[in-house]
Design a protein around this nucleic acid. Structure first.
Lengths: 122, 122
DNA sequence: CAGCATCCATTCAGATACTG
DNA sequence: CAGTATCTGAATGGATGCTG
């Protein structure tokens, strides 16, 4: 009977954290934080490209030819806001902006792997 | 130099599978499969409730009071289609339907844990 | 009890055109 | 090159009312 916090019922497979009990999809829930970072079409594919290394806007557009400029810009801004990647604007002309994952962004690797594993087996 | 398949470049953190190279968000990508199963507001919270055990429609509605009947029914249908849970309609009156996770549904535990972990640390 | 049908507001993706 | 602005259509979420 050790390992069981007094006054708690067992919650199989879930962290012993008050945020595991939220009754609504609040932004403070860690699961929501991650899903918000990955939300939207194309997002995981952009992250996948950057897991392979630094990329410019054009390189990302070439790797994902069916992705429009607008949505790519949207996704990059979203991922930057989430702390997943950083912009690196190079001065001069023509302008070059490259994108690379932050340490936090690299830690999405295991998350994508978990998503992959479930979908690959089922 | 062992461990490296001939003719492949290294893809850090990504499976050595052709589906890891898709150029668009196709339904055949395992990551998309999982994200499709978890898509939509409230979905992960419904799964969380069922990770704790079998629940009826009403019990789920009580655990998530801000979730409308329509969306709850939508989510349950979506999760059933994805093979995450099974409906158990009890005959007689009043009707009772309970929901429980399939083995596959239980395997979402580690996926939610990975999402949690990233969002909790960052 | 466990839902489905209908309607409405909001969000989202994509297309097109334009710019520092 | 690397975006922004604007518009349109599709998908989504939520409210309300009805039914086997």
């Amino acid at each position: 009977m050790a390992h069981q916090t007094v006054g708690h019922v067992v919650r199989p497979g879930l962290p012993d954290d008050p945020r595991a009990d939220v009754a609504a999809p609040t932004p403070s829930c860690p699961v929501e934080v991650t899903l918000a970072a990955l939300r939207g079409r194309w997002t995981t594919l952009v992250v996948r490209e950057l897991l392979r290394g630094e990329r410019t806007f054009t390189e990302l557009a070439q790797a994902l030819p069916a992705l429009s400029d607008k949505v790519l810009a949207d996704r990059l801004a979203q991922l930057a806001r989430s702390g997943v990647l950083v912009r690196d604007r190079r001065p001069g002309f023509p302008p070059r902006t490259s994108y690379r994952l932050t340490p936090q962004g690299h830690r999405l690797g295991p998350v994508l792997q978990a998503l992959w594993d479930w979908g690959a087996e089922g």
